[in-house]
Design a protein around this nucleic acid. Sequence first.
DNA 1: TATGAATGAGATTTCATTCAT
DNA 2: GATGAATGAAATCTCATTCAT
Lengths: 203, 203, 203, 203
Amino acid sequence: MTSQKSKAAPKPAAKAPQRERGRARVAALLDAAAQVFARDGYEGATMTAVAKHAGASIGSLYQFFPTKPLIAEALYAREMEALSTALAEAAQGGPWRLDDLAEQLFAALIGYVWKHPALAIISDRRRADAKPRRGQPSNLRDQLAALLAQARPKPTADEARRAAWLIHVLSKGASAAKVNEDPQYAMLMAELRAMLRARLSHD
Amino acid sequence: MTSQKSKAAPKPAAKAPQRERGRARVAALLDAAAQVFARDGYEGATMTAVAKHAGASIGSLYQFFPTKPLIAEALYAREMEALSTALAEAAQGGPWRLDDLAEQLFAALIGYVWKHPALAIISDRRRADAKPRRGQPSNLRDQLAALLAQARPKPTADEARRAAWLIHVLSKGASAAKVNEDPQYAMLMAELRAMLRARLSHD
Amino acid sequence: MTSQKSKAAPKPAAKAPQRERGRARVAALLDAAAQVFARDGYEGATMTAVAKHAGASIGSLYQFFPTKPLIAEALYAREMEALSTALAEAAQGGPWRLDDLAEQLFAALIGYVWKHPALAIISDRRRADAKPRRGQPSNLRDQLAALLAQARPKPTADEARRAAWLIHVLSKGASAAKVNEDPQYAMLMAELRAMLRARLSHD
Amino acid sequence: MTSQKSKAAPKPAAKAPQRERGRARVAALLDAAAQVFARDGYEGATMTAVAKHAGASIGSLYQFFPTKPLIAEALYAREMEALSTALAEAAQGGPWRLDDLAEQLFAALIGYVWKHPALAIISDRRRADAKPRRGQPSNLRDQLAALLAQARPKPTADEARRAAWLIHVLSKGASAAKVNEDPQYAMLMAELRAMLRARLSHD
DNA sequence: TATGAATGAGATTTCATTCAT
DNA sequence: GATGAATGAAATCTCATTCAT
């Protein structure tokens, strides 16, 4: 934190790279950021560490991401994009019954989150930073609901929303409880899937 | 001054107060720490802020808690103690059926965690700092299992463990998904409770 | 912020400057450190004072010397290098008789130490910090012995070692007793030189 | 360092204890100080460490020694007293020849200093703190000279002073070079004694 | 654009000393 | 007197960010 700039300060934004070379560098920087955030947490991660991890100089990092929050935002956007794609792929090939589809989405979501630990960390921080506005919608939940709406027989909007919410909550629980680090891993996952399916398959 | 300590360096520990005044001060410091951790997160919380919040000087804080991790540990211990008590109370007055008892414990756990947001923050950090040793047991889960073992008819050890695990995962999910900040709060909680009960009351 | 580093913590080392500007800065910082150590002693010297003396910001100092011991080490290395050179020069132009050479080295050593008071201070501290391992060899003594071995007639290894040790002890005595601050300075030095020469010139 | 007192401030002094109990406590505190100074150096020694070492409370320490310099001064006085006595004892039983007496005094001085490492540390600091006044006399040297004056045949005042100075310088050298930690200890000491005796017994 | 040096606010921590009981 | 808590100036160290080349 250095000088409190008193001029208008046209809020800085991550600059899009102009050349091929630049695009590669940005990708490398984001990869590095993901690793460092995952290892050290958001506050624990230093800009210097990110740059070094990417094999770039600190100056170079700042060329593309003028502040620390901006790199987090950019990483978040990239990860959410990829997650979106992964979920969409998991819903391919249908139509599926609601419970089957939910199970597949749950598995895909959990799988993605475990392979991209930085995502959870940045999401947390975003939530922490956001003004505590009630009921702010989860984009993730919306997307899940949209995908679930493609089940057959077609669920009502409410049913889809409810299923999306269940998937969301269970996946959070599984991540937070570090289910993947438990030796009983397979059994526990089966348990969660069964719980989800049971709750949906009906009554 | 500070001096490079070549002197044994007998890893610092929280000093126990010996006078009534000290005891009060320690309690106040822990209260302040809980608030600041809850508000700013572990890394975001500063020792200065904790001291100020407690109406103490920075030196006073360091007299009892010579490092930031130590105050986190002390707070964690105090919170876990209280949580233990709360859970034990929730299990009073039985005997209960397993699904009823589980539901009560779930409600008690969720309730406690929501009233003590610092606990989640510190738990997270402890896990993050711990060497990534596989399958290290959760004391909380053990205690839940022990309480659940008192259900009637008596569950097997495996059943108790499984129930404890479900409670744990669902509570994590509920916290992480900030269920309590959702306008639909009551309905969602009911949903979770039903899911838990259904999974236990059995197959 | 500061963050409890759970990250490997790869023991910090003085960073070598990569640019001309950095090299100049490092030299200035070491010069400043020498002055401040000489004036205030090791413990009394503050990083802030060193930085200010060098006309650098505290951050700049820490960029190159991340801890106080590290700057002391770097200064020690630089001084020992220079002392080495000075002693080698004093031994030039031989061959000399052992007692003559010893006298010259003694004078050179004393002269250097008096012009570089920080060296004695840092040496002291290094010894104090070192694990009390018996008989750890003095590099200085080794170098003196090597130079003395060039005397003619050639001394035995033992004779050279003994002479080196005498020079070392007498120089320590002269420094510690602050002979150079005594009004009788010239006479006292002559006395010491005579003592050394008498002890070597034989028998 | 706390408040800058603006009142006259009647310079604090070590308070003499009134009762038997107090005398014992003062002795214990000085013993503790000696150990801690020896281990950590003057700056590195903390008042808290001294108090703990003595099994006293910090408040109790300050009762007798209101500042850190004062405890150093008191310790210095006690040590110098004891050293004086030791030297006087070493000179007993004469008359001796000058070289014999010098050798005995040298041995006694070295022996005392090695058994009381705090003395060297405090002496250093006193010198460091003293305004750099030229030629300020060494009380120790004066006492040595006085004792040496009792040799037979009676030395001139100059001879006694010269011998005292040699003893002083050699003892400093031996301490600084940590002769006592060298495996060759006995041989090295013999060397020093021989050097001293040769220089005196004379020319 | 790339690089590494420079900056300084602010965080953690220490410790001599004073105060209240 | 004795005890332990309280204080705060000052020291060490960190790191996001800016600058100069």
